[in-house]
Design a protein around this nucleic acid. Structure first.
Length: 324
DNA sequence: AATGCCTTCAACCGCGGGTGT
DNA sequence: CACACCCGCGGTTGAAGGCAT
């Protein structure tokens, strides 16, 4: 389990830090090896590197008594030879009682992929929607796992190609895993994510994006045996969008509009498929053929060709991932 | 068993924005 | 208004453990 690994790593690091600490002159950023004996009488040097158990204990106790914030003052008052920054980071990323450790669940992975598609490298913003997860952890996850997959697929993690792979292949698969794991839980997470994003959309752009249609691509995760695209009205952000019991990718036309002109252009060329301008009444269903062909030949060929070109490698990676 | 490469993640750094004086 | 300080964010680094040879 990753949490065990983290803990063992942390304690080992702490032991090492206790044996050989590095200190830094905060004002000038100078780094030195060997630490305490090099302190000058005027300026107490600051420790850096891995935290010791004693330091953790001191910080946790101080925050328990006095609360967090004002980190530079806190570091001094607590008697820690650390910068305020370092204390803050240690607390937020590691010592905070509600920090969740261990591997990301399929739900969380799905949420990260979805939110990153929408917001890019806004790690702290993404982290706000994953309770107990820190921006640092999500960032590391992205860089080590997601970018690795992108590299193995020979494309950039920020490229349209990879984003499309996530939308059409990875996310449906994660939905599948999440469904098998806990159907209701992932629905509630997605619902939470939508509500949170909509609530935070006072700035308008997200509101606009969510005002656009939801597009549900059914059964892509099971090899595109069939696909159903549903576009519903603007107030379909709510959970009923997810209540039909099927396995699907949740891809929003508005999100596509937000994330690239290509999608906007594609959508403009496929009004029959994604009638995003249709913000009124009833949902529009576009049924793919049993062979997995979309009614739109261009999109069908593009999706299927892409899917065929990477699916083997992609699922193999998924299997590796599940074993972690 | 020894060695070297790879992966992961805690921690650091620089920067920009906010706030107080 | 200018300056200093603080805070938070995103990018990067380096150490430890895992794994392959």
């Amino acid at each position: 389990m990753a949490s065990t690994q983290s803990r063992s790593r942390s304690s080992a690091a702490a032991a090492k830090a206790a044996a050989c600490s590095e200190v830094v002159d905060e004002e000038h950023g100078r780094r030195r090896q060997g630490g305490a004996q090099e302190e000058t009488e005027n300026k107490p040097e600051l420790r850096r590197g891995p935290w010791t158990v004693d330091e953790d204990f001191t910080l946790v106790n101080y925050i328990a008594d006095n609360g967090e914030g004002r980190w530079n003052n806190l570091a001094r008052a607590a008697g820690l030879k650390r910068t305020g920054k370092s204390c803050r980071l240690r607390w937020l990323n590691y010592l905070r009682p509600d920090v969740k450790r261990g591997n990301f669940s399929a739900d969380e992975q799905l949420l990260i992929l979805d939110l990153h598609t929408r917001w890019g490298n806004r790690w702290s913003k993404i982290a706000q929607h994953l309770p107990g997860r820190t921006d640092n952890e999500i960032k590391n996850y992205w860089r080590t796992r997601v970018q690795k997959h992108a590299k193995q697929l020979n494309c950039d993690a920020n490229s349209k190609r990879f984003k499309d792979a996530m939308r059409y292949l990875w996310m449906p698969h994660l939905v599948d895993i999440a469904s098998a794991d806990d159907d209701h839980h992932h629905l509630s997470l997605l619902h939470h994510q939508q509500q949170a994003a909509a609530a935070g959309a006072g700035n308008g752009d997200l509101a606009a994006s969510y005002a656009a249609a939801d597009v549900h691509l059914h059964a892509l995760s099971s090899g595109m045996a069939a696909a159903t695209t549903t576009s519903s009205s603007s107030d379909s952000l709510a959970s009923e969008s997810y209540e039909d019991g099927g396995l699907f990718a949740n891809v929003r036309a508005g999100e596509m509009l937000m994330n690239g002109g290509d999608w906007a252009a594609k959508e403009a060329n496929h009004q029959g498929l994604w009638p995003s301008s249709d913000h009124d009444q009833s949902a529009v269903q576009v049924q793919a053929t049993p062979g997995g062909q979309f009614q739109d030949p261009e999109l069908s060929g593009w999706v299927q060709g892409f899917s065929e070109s990477i699916t083997d490698n992609f699922w193999a990676l998924e299997e590796i991932w599940k074993m972690q």
